[in-house]
Amino acid sequence: MQATAEIERNDAPAAAPSRSWTRAWADIRNGIAQRELWGHLGWQDIKQRYRRSVIGPLWITLSMAITAAGLGFLYSQLFHIPVETFLPYLTVGFIVWGFILGCLTEGADTFITNEGLIKHLPAPITVYALRTVWRLTLMLAHNLVVYVVVLAVFWSHLTQRYILSPPETPNPEWHHGLGWDALLAIPGIALIALNGLWVVILFGIISTRYRDIPQVISALTQLLFFMTPIVWTTDILRSRVGGGDGGWRELVAELNPLYHYIQIVRAPLLGNNMNWHNWVVVLGLTIVGWSLAFLAMRNYRARVSYWV
């Protein structure tokens, strides 16, 4: 009997080591498969946040509408841009920025805030990253209601050619207006959500080990907001240089990766001129980001439960 047991142990397949690409991929695959779990947890997060509120999650939409309207009217006057075109531009920028900001800040705290579940629920850690991304996606969907309202109000201005620079700008760039290319926003949002997942996984693992990282991210996001064309436009940069050529000043936006993420959604939704290099940059960052996330999952996935 002992000899038989020894033979069976020798013939049994060896378990993959904790530091392996196989286990990292299995964690992500199994996490995605448990969609009922992370879907329920993400929805419960929103319900819990607005529990006993009269209008509930509609506060997400209302707060976005108030912010976009207030800043839209203010900055349109400061930049001398018609509010009919600038307010939709700022609104969509804020909507996409809110999702990106959530992935950076809430993503860094994902595993820390889920400490209790990680220690007591035998589930892939990808579940908690998906929980965060799903919650932020639901908030994005709520905020898109504001875009629909703004679109209905300014429909006649957005469906024709318009500019996003002061009227006195020499050789302004004319945007073609809304058309069927607005459907490109759908793969744009999907691509941003895919990137949000690797951001949450990567920064979540790093922040679990080094607790100062969330504070660093929170501080940098303030700078990134003002460096990203959200309340200002690249057309304004271009208009500040004679002849309408922004030159090196346009690099302030072009070298900012967040600009490209926002632009692949904002440009089609507003009928802005589409630059395909925005998609190339985002796709390149997607590949690099997921490579780093897989590396972090391979090396440190098993340690997360000890670090939280």
Rank of each mutant, 00 (worst) to 15 (best):
V96L: 13
A65V: 01
I205S: 01
D11P: 00
F99I: 00
T169V: 08
I189K: 00
E36L: 12
T221A: 06
G179W: 12
I287L: 13
I287N: 02
W276T: 13
A69R: 07
A253D: 04
I205E: 05
V153R: 05
A185W: 03
T22G: 03
G247W: 07
I230R: 10
I100C: 10
T67C: 08
V281E: 06
I55L: 14
R249Y: 13
L101P: 00
Q48M: 14
W38R: 08
M64S: 03
A182P: 02
W279F: 11
V148E: 07
Q77K: 13
Q160C: 08
G196A: 10
E250Q: 13
H175I: 00
G242L: 12
D245Q: 10
M297L: 14
I28C: 04
Y89Q: 06
Y50D: 07
I100P: 01
G56C: 09
L295R: 12
S53P: 02
F111R: 02
I112H: 15
L117S: 11
V304K: 04
I7L: 13
L62P: 01
W248D: 09
A68Y: 08
T137N: 10
V216Y: 11
F94H: 14
W97I: 04
L78N: 03
L140C: 06
A302Y: 03
L269T: 05
T169R: 12
I230E: 00
I100D: 04
V308S: 04
L74M: 09
H260P: 08
A190T: 05
N278T: 05
H157Q: 12
D181L: 15
R238C: 09
V216N: 05
Q263P: 02
A65H: 00
S156D: 05
W198H: 10
F99K: 02
D245F: 11
C103D: 10
I55T: 03
I192R: 04
L251Y: 14
I201H: 00
R266W: 05
P17A: 09
V304F: 07
I95W: 01
Y50Q: 05
T105S: 15
D27Y: 09
R29C: 11
S305N: 09
E115F: 08
E115L: 07
Q77W: 13
L58P: 02
S76I: 10
Q215W: 02
H260R: 02
V153C: 00
V146W: 03
L136K: 06
W25C: 02
G70M: 09
V133W: 05
T22S: 14
N256V: 13
K119A: 11
A15W: 05
A190Y: 07
D245E: 14
